[in-house]
Design a binder for these strands. Structure first.
Length: 784
DNA sequence: CAGCCATATCTTTTT
DNA sequence: GATATGGCTG
């Protein structure tokens, strides 16, 4: 029987089918089980037509899984349930109706890169200096505005007399016009336009209200204001809105997620039922306790207490290393050992970290240990140059109004159409208020050299040929025409480098994805393919079947679980991030803590937390102390060890302390700090046992991907190693975590020390003065 | 117009 | 350290 496998709370949630329902589901409490069973119950017991059920998830992968699991529970019909992400739901709706609000149904979707390209054009047009106002920051203001459903006009009003904000509002307006002209929507627009559509056309809204009588939203804590509006509109007729989430796992504030949505659900829907799922089925006792001990330090959260009836299991392993290199090495060897022992398989192990950049060194070490791995995040397949180029061709064929795509490919491969020509065409387009592509077609009206004009006509013609094949020939054939016809592939083949070969592989990979799409879809269209491609997340490609160690950011790990988890880089300044520590807004730190909670609760039976005394960040050596979150875990459940502190031998000898003559010689070339610290720091560290690495210990931070380990002499000869540089500062006799005294600010605790090249930049938390960044040379800090 | 070299800035996290 | 940008030269 359907309900037999559920606990009381879960069963209650499944049976509560009518009206608004909030399910507060702690980590690992069987949330997905509840949703799938609820859907099955609606269909099997309540006789609801699957067609009337909508489930919104966070990723495509989650959507696929949900459909699969419902499929196992109900005999048939699961395929007509609408299961998808917010973004793809909106796209589906907009593809049908967006013409009602003045767009063409063939709109293209812009990713972050495209947005930036548009922004650059606008900066040119409005004569804005990108050094004064960064495109990125304007885009982020625009994004937040969209998430809050603030229009350019409203933003202008809000800006009042503030010149800077007026400027941003003006850019926002221009940006929207540009997108409209290109018949393009950015990610945020997908939601905004869907809501606009519903508000503008009550008949269309009603049509969808009738269809989606039962709506379920997963990961509700990560919804933003537009998303909330979107589901509210849909649910406003039948009010069968079931949201599932955990306020403790809200980690997408930076993307506009509004934690109030879940905290205030009962205020918005006073008649709502609330059910708490507090039994955790995933983690062993110690892991769960650690998670609870961390999260209870947050002030704004719903009261709940996760418990388990599982055994305590191992304590949390806590390991400190000298360098990130040692950390990675230790993790790799631990995985190798445990797999060899038969404790775990590769795919049961995951390395989680705060920032994508941390994956490099882990990757390198896993390669040397011959451990299969896969990295998620970082550069998405669809963001690679070659893939974006080909997609831009396809977009141009599909929607020539998309200026961004046209401009991207007009000179790829090189056709001899340069910047000057492009500027002329753009000017012509602006003047006649036509698209870039239309301007290209009127090349003879412009003052452009015949040779170049002919090249342009050739380009236009080739696009025209590809387009004429649409509908007549399979999409894959058009694809192949493009890569052959333009000479794109041939150019790469001639290059004959490893990089070029990888590019070709990626293009082939894209082709096979198109082939898949064509085979699977009933009515394959170019727009359809492009849209599918625009909305995939990296995590969507995660397969449980293949045996590899998984590397990903904590953000991407949400919703997943692994028997053996390594949580690395647990250092104050890295995690919690430096930004969140120094920010005036304490909620930033709370969000980091939630992130930590998410990380810990990914682990099922073994959790290893690691951190390093020193780490290379953006080409600078950073010295950090252990994360404050680790200190929130009771020592009773920690098994703590420091590794490598005794390995001091040879440091001084193998590098050699340099004198000032050598410094002068070196100053002609860029003396990067790549080879560790200057003499004074080395001495300071040396005396404090902070640093104990040996020479080869550094090769990790020097060699990139694919460079296998080098011997010490090879390193020296390769030029990768630069000699140490004498610092003008006196040696530092304090380290992160120490109390120091400042003449003005009094006593404070050192948070981090960054090697700024000429001097050390010391961040100190002062009692009464807050956080200050000081230069060691001037600050004259005294250890107390 | 394209290719080369020097420089500046970067990083939190992503649909 | 890596990548995007800008200036210069052939």
């Amino acid at each position: 029987m359907l309900l037999d496998t559920l606990n009381d709370r879960q069963r209650e949630a499944v049976l509560c089918t009518e009206g608004p329902l909030l399910i507060l589901a702690g980590a690992g409490s069987g949330k997905t089980r509840v949703i799938t069973h609820r859907i099955a119950y609606l269909i099997e017991e309540k006789g609801i037509n699957p067609w009337n059920i909508m489930a919104i998830t966070f990723t495509n992968k989650a959507a696929g899984e949900m459909r699969e699991r419902v499929d196992e529970l109900v005999g048939f019909g699961s395929e007509s349930i609408w299961v998808s992400t917010f973004h793809s739901s909106c796209v589906k709706i907009l593809r049908r109706h967006i013409d009602k609000i003045g767009y063409d149904n063939h709109f293209t979707i812009y990713d972050t890169d495209d947005q930036k390209t548009v922004m650059k054009e606008i900066y040119k047009k409005l004569n804005i200096d990108s050094k004064q106002l960064k495109e990125r920051s304007v885009l982020s203001v625009i994004s937040s505005a969209k998430n809050e459903m603030i229009s350019p006009e409203q933003l202008k009003k809000q800006a009042g007399e503030n010149y800077g904000q007026q400027k941003i509002a003006k850019i926002y307006k221009e940006y929207q016009e540009q997108l409209h002209k290109n018949n393009a929507l950015d990610f945020d627009d997908l939601l905004v336009k869907a809501v606009e559509l519903f508000e503008a056309c009550p008949d269309i809204l009603e049509q969808y209200q009738e269809r989606f009588r039962y709506i379920m939203v997963d990961e509700y804590q990560d919804t933003n204001t537009v998303q909330f509006r979107f589901v509210s509109l849909l649910a406003s007729k039948y009010k069968n809105l079931c949201v599932v989430g955990d306020d403790d796992q809200s980690i997408y504030k930076f993307r506009g997620a509004n934690i109030e949505n879940i905290l205030n659900y009962e205020k918005v829907f006073p008649e709502a039922n609330v059910i708490k799922l507090e039994q955790n089925y995933r983690s062993k006792g110690n892991i769960l306790n650690a998670a609870n001990q961390v999260i209870r330090n947050n002030t704004t959260r719903k009261d709940k207490a996760l418990w388990t009836d599982k055994e305590d299991g191992d304590k949390i392993h806590l390991r400190q290393y000298n360098t990130a290199y040692d950390e990675a090495e230790a993790i790799a060897s631990d995985i190798a050992r445990r797999v060899e022992n038969g404790e775990y398989t590769y795919k049961q192990c995951a390395c989680l970290y705060r920032t994508n950049a941390q994956s490099r060194m882990l990757e390198e070490k896993l390669i040397t240990w011959n451990i299969p791995y896969k990295i998620f995040g970082g550069i998405n397949f669809y963001q690679r140059k070659e893939v974006k180029d080909i997609l831009a061709y396809l977009k141009t064929v599909d929607n020539a109004r998309d200026d961004v795509a046209v401009k991207r490919i007009i000179n790829i491969p090189k056709r001899g159409i340069g910047q000057t020509t492009l500027d002329k065409v753009q000017a012509f387009a602006n003047q006649h208020e036509i698209t870039f592509y239309e301007a290209l077609m009127r090349v003879e009206e412009m003052d452009i050299a015949t040779r170049t004009a002919n090249k342009i006509r050739e380009f236009i013609n080739s696009i025209r040929v590809y387009r004429s094949k649409l509908g007549e020939f399979p999409l894959t054939e058009i694809f192949e025409d493009i890569i052959e016809g333009t000479g794109y592939k041939r150019e790469l083949e001639l290059e004959d480098t490893d990089e070029a070969r990888t590019r070709i592989e990626n293009i082939d990979e894209l082709l096979s994805k198109l082939t898949d799409y064509q085979n699977v879809t009933e009515e394959p269209t170019l727009s359809g393919f492009l849209e599918e491609v625009a909305l995939v997340a990296d995590i969507d490609s995660y397969e449980e079947n293949s045996d590899y160690v998984v590397l990903m950011t904590i953000h991407s790990s949400k919703g997943l679980e692994f028997p053996n988890v390594y949580l690395c880089g647990m250092e104050d300044g890295l995690f919690p991030s430096y930004m969140s520590i120094t920010d005036d807004d304490p909620t930033e730190l709370e969000e980091e803590r939630r992130l930590c909670y998410v990380a810990i609760t990914r682990a099922m039976d073994n959790l290893t937390v690691t951190y390093a005394r020193s780490r290379m960040v953006r080409g600078e050596m950073q010295y950090n102390k252990v994360s404050r979150f680790v200190k929130e875990i009771s020592p009773m459940i920690l098994d703590a060890k420091e590794e490598g502190t005794m390995n001091l031998g040879g440091f001084g000898k193998s590098i050699g302390f340099t004198n000032s003559t050598e410094e002068k010689q070196d100053s002609s070339q860029t003396v990067k700090r790549s080879y560790g610290m200057g003499t004074s720091a080395a001495r300071a560290a040396f005396s404090r046992n902070i640093y104990g690495g040996n020479l080869t210990g550094y090769s990790g931070s020097l060699g990139g991907f694919g460079k296998k380990s080098m011997s010490a002499s090879e390193l020296m000869n390769s030029g990768a190693v630069k000699k140490g540089v004498e610092k003008s500062s006196a040696s530092l006799d304090y380290a992160p975590g120490d109390k120091v005294k400042h003449i003005k600010f009094g006593v404070g605790e050192v948070i981090s020390i960054v090697d700024g090249g000429r001097d050390y930049e010391v961040t100190v938390q002062f009692e009464g003065y807050g956080i200050k960044k000081l230069f060691a040379q001037f600050a004259k800090l005294k250890k107390v």
